[in-house]
């Protein structure tokens, strides 16, 4: 069974998580410096989340469809995103095998993985606050 019941729940959890990442200057500072627009596209259930740092100043979190053209697009099942934030996904392996599909200069986004690693510890709390079990 899929972790997220529907798109609203998925969007709610991812939005809450990214807001906490934004509130953490250690993470958001470095993400903003990279000036990227990264879009996550989820399926089962469907969802879209866009992180826009293009102005090098502020991180904008856009939930749902947007006209903004991302520099990098990462598509995956919502369950994979959930496992990722629990720190359980070997990202290079998921990319080789196609579990994560990326469009654009992927390595630029991957270089930011160490930056967002501290968010793994935020995620269980986010799930709890959103009324979900973390497993």
């Amino acid at each position: 069974m899929a972790v997220f019941c529907n798109s609203d729940e998925l969007h709610h959890v991812m939005d809450m998580l990214w807001r906490r990442i934004k509130d953490d200057p250690g993470m958001s500072g470095k993400l903003v410096e990279a000036k990227l627009i990264v879009q996550f596209r989820y399926r089962d259930p469907e969802g879209t989340l866009t992180i826009d740092c293009s102005d090098g100043n502020e991180m904008k979190i856009i939930v749902g469809p947007t006209r903004l053209k991302p520099v990098i697009e990462m598509s995956m099942k919502a369950d994979i995103a959930h496992e990722f934030w629990l720190g359980k996904v070997n990202v290079p392996m998921a990319i080789i095998s196609g579990k994560i599909v990326s469009r654009g200069p992927t390595p630029k986004a991957l270089a930011l993985l160490p930056v967002i690693r501290p968010a793994y510890t935020l995620y269980p709390q986010v799930l709890q606050d959103a009324g979900k079990k973390s497993a």
Partner: peptide, 8 residues
Amino acid sequence: RDFEGMHA
């Protein structure tokens, strides 16, 4: 360039 990336 639209197809740059992995599995795009």
